[in-house]
Computed example of a mutant assay.
Amino acid sequence: MDYSTNDTSLPPVYLFITSNLNPFIFVVISLAGLIGNGLVIFCLLYFTNLKTVPNVYILNLAVIDLFFLLGLPLMAYQYHFHDWPFGVVLCKFANGMDVVNQYGSAWTLVAMSADRFTAVVYPLSSMQRRTRSCARMVCTVVVVWSFVLGAFNWIFATVVSFQVDDSGKEEQFCMLDIPANLTSMHIIYSAFNFTFGFAIPLAAILFFYMSIFYIMQTNDFYFRSNAKTAAQRASKRVAVLTIAVIVVFFICWMPYYTVQFKLLLQDMRNEGYTISLSVIQQLSIALCYMNSLFNPFVYTFIGENFRKNLAKLFCYGARNLNRGRSGRDSSSYTRSTVKLQPLKRHKTKATYYPSDVTIDVANERNNNTATTAT
């Protein structure tokens, strides 16, 4: 089933979903996502206290989502009007950024998970390597890797003309035009897409975050009394963010890949598609596009620093932005309040800290040295 078809012989429910419901959902996702990701990008670039290593990955995720959302209204137009008047360049852009967003989002999450895992397992040795410059380099590699994985779409996406009726009238559609001698490639590509766009990234995310959970539960760190509440709240936020990362990614993408796997099996058996499966396919496409809408809320609005800076942005106006940039956040999760205080009989173990929670091991060592000298 081609989503661009306007065949009136198809069931009304299928035509309604492809021609009306999905375009409406795409427009809503695009508008809300552009606003949400735009606010994320502005805040992360403007406010000094948000310029941390984890937020570099969040910024990369927001930029990838933003470029994808710019082309989504064009796809909504084709769904609704069954025509593509925007030319080949925009056709390649819309299809290309679609697949770049698919791979880029997944592998950016992998990079975020690996960064936090490194901070937990190697908190001291990783301090020199976990810099914003290094994070930007990793994000650049992720983007290039996403373009490489999505090269198939960039190459074969083009505008194809179809004759509508006997009068000679033609309609144009933006789609993947695969040469006749490569028609079997779609089976290989579907398997490739599932493996590198979902299976491997999800397995890596689960491994890193489950390891983080394990280390958080088994570490023997002791905190000072004035930071006990802060540490507990920070750990709770880490748990909430971890669960949200896995659940949102899984819910948004699992239905789509499940349907694609079912279609792949039917292609291999030379079986036709049922209307019910085609309807589910269309709904799964809309659901996976919603991932770009949910990302700003999951990865940033959960953070306390981001919410406070956003409140400054809207409640106090532009005249207070300079104060927001220069002043540090008043959150209790700062370098000066959360310090490691292990017992002498325990060896220092790894611990986890999110973007607004750090462990000032260097200051603690200096304090102990000064006390000994006295």
Rank of each mutant, 00 (worst) to 15 (best):
N366S: 13
F198N: 06
V245C: 07
N193V: 09
E170I: 15
F24S: 04
L45H: 12
A350Q: 06
F86E: 11
V148E: 08
N368Q: 07
P85H: 14
F68I: 10
H346C: 12
Y214S: 03
P54D: 06
P354K: 11
I251R: 02
T372Q: 15
I58T: 15
S276T: 02
S167Y: 08
F194V: 03
N6S: 11
T242Y: 11
A373F: 11
P11I: 05
G36S: 15
F301D: 00
K262N: 13
L90M: 00
V247S: 11
F152I: 05
A286R: 05
F194A: 04
T140C: 01
S4R: 13
I41S: 06
D166G: 12
Y214C: 06
I251G: 07
T140V: 05
I285L: 13
A199T: 08
R319V: 07
A318G: 02
Q172H: 15
I64P: 00
L39A: 07
I212T: 08
F67L: 13
G272C: 12
V259L: 13
V159G: 14
S355K: 11
Y299F: 09
G33I: 06
I246C: 11
F294A: 12
F223G: 10
Y189H: 15
E304C: 09
L90E: 06
W84H: 12
A370I: 12
F16N: 06
F250S: 01
N295L: 02
L109R: 10
I178M: 01
D98P: 00
L321C: 03
S278K: 08
T195R: 06
P296N: 08
E271D: 09
N101P: 04
R307H: 04
A151G: 13
V13N: 02
F207D: 00
R269W: 06
A234Y: 05
E271P: 06
L74N: 01
F250R: 03
Y273W: 12
C139D: 12
S113C: 05
L293S: 07
M127W: 04
V247P: 03
S190D: 15
S30D: 08
G324D: 07
D165T: 13
T337P: 03
S146A: 12
R136N: 01
N20L: 04
A231L: 04
A76P: 12
F67E: 08
F68A: 12
R345E: 15
K339V: 03
N49S: 13
V89F: 14
S105H: 00
T372W: 14
I302W: 02
P12F: 09
F301Q: 05
Y353W: 09
I212N: 07
N20K: 03
A62H: 01
L31A: 09
P255A: 00
Q78I: 11
T5A: 06
L34M: 15
H82V: 02
V121G: 03
